[in-house]
Design a protein around this nucleic acid. Structure first.
Lengths: 155, 155
DNA sequence: GGGCCGAGTTCCAAGATGCAACCCGCTGCG
DNA sequence: CGCAGCGGGTTGCATCTTGGAACTCGGCCC
């Protein structure tokens, strides 16, 4: 009945999917990357229901993707900021943006262009191999069991 | 009421999230990348309900991420294969796997190791800038409106 | 003739979502 | 003082979506 919990599966994709496989979570992280930090701003920007937002933020704080820090006392007000873990999810969003740009964009062109300030160029994300820096392709990658792989498993 | 549809939003992340922001969809694509093609194999590998599986596969075929091709007639049997669009989503999964490996792995180590056959090394995915090949970091990226950006918008 | 695939549907109860309305501790303001 | 406003949430309720298990259907196999 309740959404299957994949966080304990012997697969890093399944574990990530447990938290990132939710459009609101993805969108919240994206907004946060864009500088949004406050409840009402998330709500207004995404049009997400306040209860859902509240629940999602709690989950993300729980997962250490956001931290809830007070930015004023009396009345106590909090804002949500990305942790290193959350910030580190940005590449995934960038990869999704690149995919969306390639496959889900109509003739009108991309709504958003990313600009890399380090090299001062407009760019898009490319996912490469850590060893040879070649872009990845499913056909050149094999998955094999690692140290944390249990004997019986789904793969 | 029904799950908010973000596929028309002026944001490539939101559009991608509409289809990739679902753990089953992600997991199905992952399985497909691993070579799974048949209904019952997906079902057995993921433990997903047959109704949900059926519904998800239909959606993914609809989105042109999978194609349903007959592999025998009489009785007609179909298998689901990744299209180029689907195959191109692999980098996203690889990025998620890398994140999961870094942040969601316990002391036992990664369950799965990826091996890049092109360079014959074990590797992990890195998301880099298409222009300067530096790994991305949120702090070095700015989003700006592109050609497909409507005047009124959420960003 | 009966059982066994693979590939789906159908049914139903338990959750999840979305929306709107309500609450709470302060602040500013007339 | 009284009261509306603001940021930040809860609560309630009507719908949808999930997950699990049972049922269907066309064709082999024995």
């Amino acid at each position: 009945m309740k959404r299957t919990d994949t966080s304990g599966w012997p697969c890093t994709v399944a574990r990530s999917a447990d938290v990132l496989g939710d459009h609101w979570n993805l969108l919240l992280i994206r907004q946060a990357c864009l500088g949004v930090r406050r409840f009402d701003d998330f709500q207004a920007a995404l049009g997400i229901g306040r209860n859902i937002l509240s629940q999602r933020l709690a989950r993300l704080v729980d997962e250490c993707i956001f931290t809830r820090v007070p930015y004023q006392g009396s009345p106590a007000r909090y804002e949500y900021r990305l942790t290193d873990k959350g910030r580190d999810a940005y590449p995934i969003l960038a990869a999704m943006a690149a995919w969306g740009e390639r496959w889900l964009t109509g003739p009108e062109g991309t709504p958003l262009v990313l600009h890399h300030t380090s090299c001062d160029h407009d760019m898009h994300a490319v996912v490469v191999c850590s060893e040879c820096a070649e872009p990845l392709d499913v056909r050149n990658v094999r998955a094999k069991a690692g140290p944390g792989y249990p004997k019986a498993a789904t793969l």
